[in-house]
């Protein structure tokens, strides 16, 4: 029997904050791609579901010295001591050893929300309501991503449905590996400023790998030791200082 084990990848992103204009295409593209339902009437920014959320962050100065940076924050795909994985009581969260993608299986989830308290990046979202699309919109859902039911946690999985599609395509062609161009998450694809670079961090020839080591590239909360696979880049000093600061400090 043929061994079908795939080579080990470590998918990650480098987001150039200087390029991000905060337009929000990525958030909408993400919701459309991953069948995230529109907000319930009563939903707020604290009960909504935004796998990818862009936070506007100010430098705190008054007019006109004020400056704002937009920080797209998604599951950081922690590569080390992944905080949400160890806490889940029933193995609904795991790190895929072959891709490094942190997966959340809503069908296994019992909705205890322990993973949400564990995640320092607030990248996990709970379905406080039953998902509801306007009447008739069901036919517009993406068939590659299962909608979630209420009462479970969900989060970014680097558009895993697209990885599935790329794998199907590769398998049909008799290939073992997917073609890199076949697997691009929706936010990366839709970003008008091309602020997000996505790829395999383990592949040193890859642009994402090179950028992750470049100057002015940083991670959020690196001292927690969780080794996030989302890197950020900014030439602005205040942005890097802000990212390095402790909250409320």
């Amino acid at each position: 029997m043929e061994q079908t084990a795939q080579s080990k990848s470590r998918y990650g992103m480098v987001i150039d904050l200087d390029r991000c204009t905060g337009c929000g295409v990525c958030m909408v593209a993400c919701a459309v791609e991953n069948n995230v339902a529109p907000a319930e009437q009563k939903a707020t920014e604290r009960t909504g579901v935004t796998w990818l959320r862009v936070y506007p962050v100010s430098n705190g100065e008054g007019f006109p010295a004020n400056d704002t940076v937009f920080i797209p924050m998604t599951c950081q795909q922690c590569g080390n001591h992944t905080p949400c994985v160890s806490v889940c009581p029933q193995n609904a969260v795991e790190v895929d050893p072959s891709t490094g993608i942190v997966g959340q299986i809503p069908q296994r989830c019992l909705g205890c929300r322990y993973c949400m308290t564990a995640c320092p990046y607030h990248a996990r979202y709970f379905d406080w309501w039953d998902p509801q699309w306007p009447e008739g919109t069901e036919v517009l859902l993406n068939p590659d991503v299962a909608p979630r039911m209420r009462g479970v946690a969900e989060k970014c999985n680097f558009c895993h449905g697209r990885l599935h599609a790329a794998r199907t395509k590769a398998a049909a062609a008799g290939r073992k590996e997917i073609a890199a161009g076949d697997y691009v998450p929706a936010c990366v694809e839709s970003c008008p400023s091309r602020a997000i670079v996505f790829g395999d961090l383990a592949d040193e020839t890859n642009e994402v790998s090179r950028l992750s080591h470049s100057i002015n590239t940083f991670q959020f909360l690196p001292k927690l030791g969780t080794a996030p696979k989302i890197f950020y880049h900014s030439a602005k000093e205040w942005v890097r200082k802000m990212a390095d600061r402790a909250p409320l400090a």
């Binding site: 889940c88 193995n91 989830c109 909705g111």
Partner: peptide, 26 residues
């Protein structure tokens, strides 16, 4: 009542994650 999907609470016994404190608690 606190968990979102109480009908699946037994999954903790069937698919326990032994590293989780919550499994121990349960």
């Amino acid at each position: 009542v606190d968990v979102g999907q109480p009908l699946r609470a037994w999954f903790t016994f069937w698919h326990p994650n032994t590293h989780s404190m919550l499994t121990e608690v349960t």
